[in-house]
């Protein structure tokens, strides 16, 4: 038996996959790769695999993580190679390591996520203007946004979850942000929610429907690595 942690990217080709579709896509790729999958017990056996975090429809990502359990021990390189041959274009395993033992659930370890966001401006604005809006927003002690809940709209406090927000560039139509937020089971802030706050609180004229969101990194609390070893996101 071997437990492995995989780091993979989700490219624009598969950006519209929901989390459920993503899981199914991996399950099928694993079968096509003919890896010796370990299955859960019970009425409806599933391959034993778990993702660190659900990525929203439309969002691409550089670093996602999953744990995978196999019935046999294989070389991590072999798993990576076989899986990459079976994955559809847009999904790519970048690293794979063997874990010494089954630890804490991957999902419970996630604490922070970093994003690059591109949004369309409804009319031209300077970078200074946008940066001022950000400063003003972040000064607030409380930022409440409305989100869709199970029983109609719900209010959500997002201010404590925003770690860092910066405007990194503006051209005529598009404005670019970098964002670091709290993520994971304790509290999960979605990038759209922060953009919505800019729109509502600071009246920033942005078209959220056409936002291009890219997840740059996923970490434990305090930007600690989910997977030991050099992290590509740090090369910058």
């Amino acid at each position: 038996m071997g437990i492995y942690r995989l780091e993979f990217s989700k490219g624009p080709e598969v950006r519209y996959l929901s989390h459920l579709e993503m899981m199914r896509t991996f399950q099928r790729a694993l079968r096509r790769a003919e890896l010796p999958l370990a299955f859960s017990e019970g009425f409806n056996p599933h391959p034993k695999m778990s993702f660190a975090s659900a990525l929203a429809v439309g969002v691409t990502s550089e670093n996602e993580y999953m744990d995978l359990e196999l019935k046999e021990n294989l070389e991590p390189e072999e798993i990576m190679e076989r899986l990459n041959q079976s994955l559809p274009s847009g999904l790519k395993v970048k690293r794979c390591i063997m874990l010494s033992q089954k630890g804490k659930a991957l999902m419970a370890m996630v604490g922070e996520a970093h994003y690059h966001i591109k949004v369309k401006l409804l009319h031209a604005l300077s970078q200074t203007h946008i940066q001022e809006a950000i400063t003003s927003l972040l000064k607030k002690k409380s930022i409440i946004i409305e989100k869709k809940g199970k029983k109609g709209p719900e209010k959500k406090e997002i201010r404590p979850g925003i770690i860092k927000l910066e405007c990194v560039g503006v051209d005529e139509e598009w404005v670019k942000f970098t964002l670091a937020v709290q993520a994971g089971s304790e509290k999960n802030i979605r990038p759209e929610e922060v953009m919505k706050a800019l729109q509502i609180y600071e009246k920033l004229p942005i078209d959220l429907e056409l936002a291009i969101i890219h997840r740059k990194g996923l970490f434990k609390k305090g930007q600690e690595q989910l997977m030991p070893g050099p992290h590509p996101a740090f090369k910058e």
Partner: peptide, 12 residues
């Protein structure tokens, strides 16, 4: 980006 279930139209 504006439609329900864009993967219906992607063809890849």
């Amino acid at each position: 980006p504006r439609v329900i279930k864009p993967i219906r139209y992607q063809g890849n």
